[in-house]
């Protein structure tokens, strides 16, 4: 269970407050107008940005000051999710062992993950030799081997075409089905939320509201969301 306990984020003129819980295993979309602080909220949960007040808790344990790599979090960013100079196997293997000392068992583990995202036999390639969709799959394979209970997606599929993006979201849903991890996913597109996230955190007007039922929220949007959805 993820708890944001009286969390306050300040950055110049920007302010955001969050006081909410996300139950274990939930799949939650984070939606709101541009500049409302969706990405910043994820940055704080992942440990890239220090809040000015409040706490981040995972299953009751305070992780507010933990280093990013020490949190129960696997995260994908908008871009630069892969190291171009490392092979696919190495990029995925980093999720198992940051020092890349992969033994035979680790290598098998990586290969299984590649199988599951549909990249069988592509481990020796470098990212430049893959399409955009395949690169996303590599990143997802790494999330899979990381096996962290909380997965944060900061629009990693924004650069893909609509069909490919839907494919990736379905893959994410299928992978999470197996692991039971909790998902927080920033999105600009209400259709993404309807597709894989039963619950939605609305970030608007300096507030991140507790998760609500996605369909209900999108069918009867409050004024701030309506202005954004148009």
């Amino acid at each position: 269970m993820l708890t944001l306990d009286n969390l306050r984020i300040d950055q110049g003129d920007f302010h955001l407050a969050a006081n909410l819980t996300v139950p274990t295993g939930a799949r939650v979309a984070v939606i709101g107008p541009s500049g409302a602080g969706k990405s910043t909220l994820l940055s704080v949960i992942a440990g890239f940005f220090d809040p000015s007040g409040g706490r981040v808790l995972w299953n009751g344990a305070d992780i507010t000051d933990a280093a990013p790599g020490a949190r129960p979090v696997a995260m994908l960013f908008q871009d630069n999710n892969l190291f171009p100079h490392l092979t696919v196997t190495q990029n995925v293997g980093l999720g198992l062992r940051p020092d890349l000392r992969l033994d035979a068992g680790d290598t098998r583990h990586v290969a299984r993950a590649l199988d599951r995202v549909g990249l069988t036999g592509m481990g020796a390639r470098r990212p430049a030799a893959l399409s955009g969709g395949q690169q996303s799959r590599v990143a997802l394979a790494r999330v899979l081997v990381q096996d962290r209970p909380l997965v944060l997606l900061d629009e990693p599929f924004a650069a893909l075409g609509p069909a490919l993006k839907r494919e990736m979201l379905d893959l994410v849903a299928a992978l999470l089905e197996g692991s039971g991890a909790t998902l927080l996913m920033v999105s600009h597109d209400p259709a993404d939320a309807r597709r894989i996230a039963p619950h939605t955190v609305l970030v608007a007007r300096g507030q991140a509201l507790p998760p609500q039922d996605t369909a209900t929220l999108l069918d009867n949007p409050p004024p701030a969301l309506r202005a954004y959805l148009g």
Partner: peptide, 25 residues
């Protein structure tokens, strides 16, 4: 700037980061 967050989220720090990320790049 390009890979700092990714490195941190994977626990690539210190000498490990130097060897696996910075020097090759």
């Amino acid at each position: 700037q390009g890979y700092g967050r990714l490195s941190a989220s994977l626990g690539l720090t210190g000498l490990l980061w130097l060897r696996l990320v910075l020097l090759p790049r």
